[in-house]
Amino acid sequence: MNVTYLRKRKRPRGSGLWAAYMLDTDAFGTWFYTPARSLFRGDNGEYCEMAQLGPAGPGEHCVQLAPHDGWWFAYFRQSGFLHVDVGTTPVLVGEEWTFEDLELDPFRQPDGTIGTEDWDELAAAHAAGLVSDAERAEAEDAARGLERDFAAGVEPFGRAGWDRLAAAVALGLPPLTDLGERPLD
Protein backbone atom coordinates (compact mmCIF):
# COMPACT_ATOMS: atom_id res chain seq x y z
CA MET A 1 0.00 0.00 0.00
CA ASN A 2 1.33 3.45 -0.94
CA VAL A 3 2.56 5.76 1.81
CA THR A 4 2.19 9.50 1.41
CA TYR A 5 2.88 12.50 3.65
CA LEU A 6 0.50 15.08 5.02
CA ARG A 7 1.48 18.57 6.13
CA LYS A 8 -0.68 21.05 8.00
CA ARG A 9 0.75 24.55 7.64
CA LYS A 10 0.22 27.38 10.10
CA ARG A 11 0.42 31.08 9.36
CA PRO A 12 2.72 32.99 9.35
CA ARG A 13 5.01 29.94 9.64
CA GLY A 14 5.16 26.46 11.06
CA SER A 15 3.78 23.08 10.17
CA GLY A 16 3.10 19.56 11.34
CA LEU A 17 3.99 16.49 9.29
CA TRP A 18 2.87 12.85 9.41
CA ALA A 19 2.75 9.84 7.12
CA ALA A 20 -0.33 7.90 6.05
CA TYR A 21 -1.32 5.00 3.89
CA MET A 22 -3.31 6.21 0.90
CA LEU A 23 -6.53 4.19 0.90
CA ASP A 24 -8.71 5.39 -1.96
CA THR A 25 -10.28 8.32 -3.76
CA ASP A 26 -14.06 8.42 -4.06
CA ALA A 27 -16.91 10.93 -4.38
CA PHE A 28 -15.99 12.47 -0.99
CA GLY A 29 -12.26 12.94 -1.65
CA THR A 30 -9.03 11.11 -0.86
CA TRP A 31 -8.89 8.82 2.18
CA PHE A 32 -5.78 8.15 4.28
CA TYR A 33 -5.03 5.86 7.21
CA THR A 34 -2.55 6.46 10.00
CA PRO A 35 -2.24 3.46 12.38
CA ALA A 36 -1.98 3.83 16.13
CA ARG A 37 1.54 4.65 17.37
CA SER A 38 2.44 6.49 14.14
CA LEU A 39 4.53 9.63 14.58
CA PHE A 40 3.72 13.31 14.03
CA ARG A 41 6.55 15.86 13.79
CA GLY A 42 6.02 19.48 14.77
CA ASP A 43 7.73 22.45 13.19
CA ASN A 44 10.24 22.50 16.07
CA GLY A 45 11.42 18.99 15.13
CA GLU A 46 9.83 17.31 18.14
CA TYR A 47 7.85 14.11 17.70
CA CYS A 48 4.67 12.85 19.32
CA GLU A 49 2.18 10.18 18.36
CA MET A 50 -0.49 11.06 15.80
CA ALA A 51 -4.10 11.31 17.06
CA GLN A 52 -3.16 11.28 20.73
CA LEU A 53 -5.78 10.32 23.28
CA GLY A 54 -4.27 12.80 25.74
CA PRO A 55 -1.38 15.25 26.03
CA ALA A 56 1.13 12.45 26.70
CA GLY A 57 -0.23 9.98 24.14
CA PRO A 58 -0.60 7.27 23.08
CA GLY A 59 -1.86 7.81 19.57
CA GLU A 60 -4.86 5.97 18.16
CA HIS A 61 -5.91 4.64 14.76
CA CYS A 62 -7.12 7.47 12.54
CA VAL A 63 -8.61 7.74 9.05
CA GLN A 64 -8.37 11.13 7.39
CA LEU A 65 -10.24 12.66 4.47
CA ALA A 66 -9.06 15.39 2.13
CA PRO A 67 -12.19 16.58 0.27
CA HIS A 68 -12.10 17.35 -3.45
CA ASP A 69 -12.99 20.98 -2.94
CA GLY A 70 -13.99 21.64 0.68
CA TRP A 71 -12.28 24.06 3.06
CA TRP A 72 -11.45 21.35 5.61
CA PHE A 73 -9.50 18.19 6.47
CA ALA A 74 -11.24 15.52 8.61
CA TYR A 75 -9.94 13.01 11.17
CA PHE A 76 -12.05 9.98 12.20
CA ARG A 77 -10.42 8.58 15.35
CA GLN A 78 -10.91 5.11 16.79
CA SER A 79 -12.19 6.55 20.08
CA GLY A 80 -15.22 7.86 18.14
CA PHE A 81 -13.97 11.45 18.11
CA LEU A 82 -14.45 13.31 14.82
CA HIS A 83 -12.26 16.38 14.41
CA VAL A 84 -11.93 18.69 11.41
CA ASP A 85 -9.31 21.32 10.65
CA VAL A 86 -10.94 24.13 8.69
CA GLY A 87 -8.36 25.27 6.16
CA THR A 88 -7.57 25.77 2.54
CA THR A 89 -8.51 22.89 0.26
CA PRO A 90 -5.86 20.14 0.62
CA VAL A 91 -3.67 19.70 -2.47
CA LEU A 92 -0.98 17.24 -3.50
CA VAL A 93 2.39 18.98 -3.92
CA GLY A 94 5.08 16.50 -4.95
CA GLU A 95 4.79 13.64 -2.43
CA GLU A 96 2.97 15.71 0.19
CA TRP A 97 -0.66 16.57 0.68
CA THR A 98 -0.76 20.03 2.22
CA PHE A 99 -3.26 22.56 3.51
CA GLU A 100 -3.15 25.81 5.47
CA ASP A 101 -4.90 25.73 8.81
CA LEU A 102 -7.44 28.55 9.25
CA GLU A 103 -7.76 27.90 13.01
CA LEU A 104 -11.38 26.69 13.39
CA ASP A 105 -11.84 23.12 14.61
CA PRO A 106 -15.36 21.68 14.36
CA PHE A 107 -15.84 18.40 16.23
CA ARG A 108 -18.28 15.72 17.25
CA GLN A 109 -17.48 13.86 20.45
CA PRO A 110 -18.37 10.19 20.95
CA ASP A 111 -21.33 11.25 23.15
CA GLY A 112 -22.76 13.31 20.23
CA THR A 113 -21.69 16.75 21.50
CA ILE A 114 -21.01 19.04 18.53
CA GLY A 115 -19.13 22.33 18.51
CA THR A 116 -16.31 24.39 17.04
CA GLU A 117 -13.18 25.46 18.86
CA ASP A 118 -10.84 28.40 18.33
CA TRP A 119 -13.15 31.17 17.11
CA ASP A 120 -10.85 33.52 19.05
CA GLU A 121 -7.79 32.24 17.16
CA LEU A 122 -9.49 32.91 13.81
CA ALA A 123 -10.40 36.43 14.94
CA ALA A 124 -6.81 37.09 16.06
CA ALA A 125 -5.34 35.71 12.79
CA HIS A 126 -7.75 37.87 10.81
CA ALA A 127 -6.91 40.98 12.87
CA ALA A 128 -3.19 40.30 12.31
CA GLY A 129 -3.73 40.09 8.54
CA LEU A 130 -2.84 36.40 8.38
CA VAL A 131 -6.34 35.45 7.17
CA SER A 132 -8.08 37.56 4.51
CA ASP A 133 -11.71 38.69 4.70
CA ALA A 134 -12.65 36.11 2.04
CA GLU A 135 -10.81 33.30 3.86
CA ARG A 136 -12.45 34.24 7.15
CA ALA A 137 -15.89 34.10 5.55
CA GLU A 138 -15.10 30.71 3.94
CA ALA A 139 -13.77 29.35 7.25
CA GLU A 140 -16.83 30.48 9.19
CA ASP A 141 -19.20 29.06 6.55
CA ALA A 142 -17.29 25.77 6.52
CA ALA A 143 -17.41 25.40 10.32
CA ARG A 144 -21.14 26.11 10.50
CA GLY A 145 -21.86 23.79 7.58
CA LEU A 146 -19.80 21.00 9.12
CA GLU A 147 -21.64 21.30 12.43
CA ARG A 148 -24.96 20.96 10.55
CA ASP A 149 -23.65 17.96 8.61
CA PHE A 150 -22.43 16.29 11.82
CA ALA A 151 -25.82 16.77 13.47
CA ALA A 152 -27.73 15.43 10.45
CA GLY A 153 -25.35 12.52 9.83
CA VAL A 154 -24.64 13.72 6.30
CA GLU A 155 -22.03 11.53 4.62
CA PRO A 156 -19.15 11.17 4.90
CA PHE A 157 -19.87 12.07 8.55
CA GLY A 158 -22.61 9.46 9.01
CA ARG A 159 -21.18 5.95 8.53
CA ALA A 160 -18.71 6.35 5.65
CA GLY A 161 -15.72 7.58 7.66
CA TRP A 162 -16.27 5.08 10.47
CA ASP A 163 -16.63 2.20 8.02
CA ARG A 164 -13.37 3.27 6.34
CA LEU A 165 -11.67 3.34 9.73
CA ALA A 166 -12.86 -0.16 10.67
CA ALA A 167 -11.71 -1.55 7.31
CA ALA A 168 -8.32 0.17 7.61
CA VAL A 169 -7.69 -1.14 11.14
CA ALA A 170 -8.55 -4.67 9.93
CA LEU A 171 -5.66 -4.44 7.42
CA GLY A 172 -3.20 -4.75 10.33
CA LEU A 173 -0.73 -2.28 8.82
CA PRO A 174 2.28 -1.24 10.91
CA PRO A 175 2.66 2.24 12.45
CA LEU A 176 4.37 4.87 10.32
CA THR A 177 7.38 6.16 12.22
CA ASP A 178 9.87 7.18 9.52
CA LEU A 179 9.35 10.66 8.07
CA GLY A 180 12.66 10.54 6.25
CA GLU A 181 14.56 13.74 5.57
CA ARG A 182 11.47 15.86 4.92
CA PRO A 183 12.08 19.51 5.85
CA LEU A 184 10.53 20.92 9.02
CA ASP A 185 8.60 23.57 7.09
Results as ranks from 00 to 15, higher is better:
residue 38 S to E: 09
residue 38 S to M: 08
residue 20 A to H: 02
residue 56 A to E: 15
residue 78 Q to S: 15
residue 81 F to Q: 13
residue 16 G to S: 15
residue 57 G to Q: 03
residue 65 L to E: 01
residue 25 T to M: 06
residue 39 L to P: 03
residue 62 C to F: 03
residue 46 E to Y: 12
residue 57 G to W: 02
residue 29 G to Q: 06
residue 36 A to K: 14
residue 44 N to V: 10
residue 50 M to Q: 12
residue 41 R to T: 13
residue 52 Q to G: 13
residue 31 W to Y: 05
residue 43 D to P: 11
residue 28 F to C: 05
residue 53 L to F: 05
residue 28 F to Y: 14
residue 51 A to D: 13
residue 57 G to L: 04
residue 48 C to D: 11
residue 70 G to F: 08
residue 43 D to C: 14
residue 27 A to Y: 00
residue 82 L to K: 02
residue 47 Y to M: 14
residue 25 T to N: 06
residue 32 F to T: 01
residue 82 L to Y: 02
residue 16 G to Q: 13
residue 68 H to A: 09
residue 61 H to Y: 00
residue 79 S to D: 11
residue 23 L to M: 11
residue 82 L to P: 01
residue 78 Q to F: 05
residue 45 G to V: 11
residue 79 S to W: 09
residue 41 R to A: 11
residue 67 P to E: 08
residue 80 G to A: 06
residue 71 W to D: 12
residue 41 R to H: 11
residue 39 L to D: 10
residue 66 A to Y: 04
residue 43 D to Y: 12
residue 31 W to D: 04
residue 68 H to L: 07
residue 49 E to Y: 08
residue 76 F to M: 01
residue 43 D to L: 06
residue 78 Q to C: 09
residue 28 F to Q: 04
residue 71 W to P: 03
residue 80 G to S: 07
residue 27 A to W: 00
residue 58 P to C: 09
residue 62 C to T: 08
residue 44 N to M: 10
residue 69 D to C: 08
residue 44 N to L: 12
residue 20 A to Y: 01
residue 53 L to Y: 05
residue 52 Q to C: 11
residue 25 T to C: 09
residue 79 S to A: 12
residue 72 W to R: 08
residue 52 Q to R: 15
residue 52 Q to Y: 02
residue 46 E to S: 13
residue 57 G to N: 04
residue 76 F to C: 01
residue 51 A to N: 14
residue 55 P to V: 07
residue 30 T to C: 07
residue 73 F to M: 12
residue 61 H to I: 01
residue 60 E to D: 04
residue 60 E to C: 06
residue 53 L to S: 11
residue 81 F to H: 14
residue 33 Y to D: 01
residue 55 P to Q: 09
residue 24 D to V: 03
residue 42 G to N: 15
residue 69 D to F: 03
residue 23 L to I: 13
residue 20 A to W: 01
residue 38 S to H: 09
residue 47 Y to Q: 13
residue 22 M to Y: 03
residue 39 L to I: 14
residue 56 A to K: 10
residue 48 C to W: 15
residue 30 T to Q: 08
